[in-house]
Simulated assay, not measured.
Amino acid sequence: MSKLAGKRTRDEVAAAIRGFTPADRARLESTSRYFGRARGFEPEVLLQEALMRAVDGRSCPDHVDVVRFVAQIMRSVAHGESEKLENQVNLVAIDHFGGAADAACQVADEADDAETQLMSAERAEACKKMHDAIIALFKDDDAALLIFEGITDDLSVAEMLELAGLDKTAYQSKRKFIRRTIDKHFPNGWKS
């Protein structure tokens, strides 16, 4: 297989994965727990899916560490799959299908009224826009991105330190950077 300019070949990615150190594996397991818990997935399944996609489906740029590459795939998979789950329809079984109408279960409609649904959808859309705008501020800073998402997902400081691979001083410095960056770009708060 010929090597693409600036991209690792499938064999190079597979070799890098086989050469992961125990620290690399621990970091990926921690990342899979973080994204798995945040998005409702089994961490082991998420990690295996990311490793499979790293070898079979995605191209890893030469300048990107393979551990970081796999972690970003986990984030992408968890985010994409959770959006699919949000759009699922809840089905309710009804007894005596095809029988007399009085033999069927009476199923109460638990959905909110149209106005409540509309207000909820508008709030969710505004939150998503705000979240996406803030994420865009840190697209080139993986540590800041992981810390911001950890804060929004109510992770402990210890979990974020482990996930981002930072010590306490670097973590505090990165939090100040995050706060200052958000304040600089949104000095009057979020306006949708």
Rank of each mutant, 00 (worst) to 15 (best):
A50V: 04
T181Y: 04
A50Q: 08
E42D: 15
A126H: 12
E125S: 15
S156W: 08
A14L: 14
L137C: 03
F148E: 04
A101T: 03
L155W: 08
R53M: 07
F97S: 04
F35A: 08
R180L: 07
E12M: 13
R175Q: 08
L166V: 03
G99W: 15
S59Q: 13
K128S: 02
G99D: 13
E81Y: 13
V45Y: 07
D153M: 14
K191D: 06
S2C: 06
A114D: 15
R75Y: 12
A121F: 12
L4H: 07
A38Y: 05
P187Q: 09
F69R: 03
R123N: 14
C105D: 15
D65S: 04
A93I: 13
A93E: 07
V67F: 02
A100D: 11
R53G: 09
M1H: 07
F69C: 12
R53L: 03
M74A: 01
A38E: 07
A104L: 12
L145P: 07
L146I: 06
V107P: 05
S173F: 08
K191T: 08
A50F: 10
I151C: 13
V67L: 01
K84V: 06
V107F: 11
A5R: 14
V107E: 10
L51S: 03
F97N: 01
P22D: 10
D167P: 14
I178W: 00
L47I: 02
L163Q: 04
E29D: 10
D142A: 09
D102W: 12
R27W: 14
D112V: 12
N87T: 11
R39M: 06
D154M: 07
D142V: 06
G40D: 11
A15M: 14
S32G: 07
R180Q: 12
H63A: 10
H79P: 00
A5L: 15
V67K: 10
A111W: 05
K128T: 10
K3V: 00
G40C: 12
A16P: 00
L118K: 14
G6A: 00
A15T: 03
G36M: 11
G98V: 06
T31V: 06
E162C: 00
R175A: 00
A93H: 14
G36W: 04
A5K: 12
E159A: 02
S173W: 05
H96I: 02
G80R: 13
D167Q: 11
F138H: 03
Q172A: 12
S82F: 05
R33G: 03
T9H: 05
L161N: 00
S120F: 12
R25M: 08
S2V: 15
L51K: 13
R39H: 15
M130H: 06
M1R: 06
D132M: 14
P22E: 12
L163F: 00
M52I: 03
T169V: 08
R179T: 13
E44F: 03
V64H: 01
E122W: 05
R180H: 09
M74P: 00
L146Q: 10
L118R: 15
T21P: 01
L163G: 00
M52V: 07
D95E: 11
